[in-house]
């Protein structure tokens, strides 16, 4: 058969052998190559699909968690704000109270001081009055050179000062 007819030749025996060898190759490859590889490709595409689905789910989960955190954070912020406001309010009230207290105390002190001053003033006036009376009695006695009854003199001076008081002091 070999080299029969040159380049272009058809010989049915060779053709049959070629056909048979190709069919055997097809069978063997179908068994050893295409079955496992098709399975592998299918598995891989399934796996990729699964992975993507998982990623999608995870993404949604993460989104949800993030949302939750955001909500919590917002709530917390609100709460903190409230607490601060409350504290400020309380502090304000306290401050007001303290101020009022100290005002009151101050007022009391001032009052007491005024009372003391008043008392001192009265005392001083009394003293002054007495001294004035004595002095005037002394002066009068000196001038008159006669001693008046002391009690009468006091009565005189008192009357005088009383009259003066009515005009000038009040």
């Amino acid at each position: 058969m070999e080299g029969h007819g040159g380049v272009i030749s058809i010989s049915w025996q060779i053709l049959l052998v070629e056909l048979a060898s190709f069919l055997i190759l097809l069978f063997v490859l179908g068994k050893f190559l295409f079955k496992p590889i098709t399975k592998l490709l299918e598995n891989r595409s399934n796996q990729i699909k699964n992975t993507f689905e998982t990623i999608e789910v995870e993404k949604q989960n993460i989104e949800k968690i993030k949302q939750d955190y955001q909500n919590q954070l917002n709530e917390l912020n609100k709460k903190v704000g409230e607490i601060i406001q409350e504290a400020t309010r309380k502090g304000d009230i306290q401050r007001q109270e303290i101020i009022a207290q100290s005002q009151k105390e101050a007022n009391k002190l001032v009052e007491r001081a005024t009372a003391v001053i008043e008392k001192e003033k009265e005392k001083a006036i009394l003293e002054l009055k007495n001294q004035t009376a004595e002095l005037s009695i002394l002066a009068a006695s000196k001038i008159l050179e006669r001693s008046i009854d002391e009690s009468m003199a006091y009565q005189l001076v008192d009357d005088f000062i009383e009259g003066m008081n009515k005009e000038t002091l009040h």
């Binding site: 058969m1 070999e2 010989s11 025996q13 060779i14 052998v17 070629e18 060898s21 190709f22 055997i24 190759l25 063997v28 490859l29 050893f32 190559l33 496992p36 590889i37 592998l40």
Partner: peptide
């Protein structure tokens, strides 16, 4: 009937099968 073409066909087939088995032994 044995021919250069047939021998080459067999060589190619055996080569492909070996390649396939090597590739598929550790997918």
């Amino acid at each position: 009937p044995i021919n250069a073409t047939i021998v080459m066909t067999w060589l190619v087939s055996i080569g492909i099968i070996i390649l396939a088995i090597v590739a598929c032994s550790s997918l």
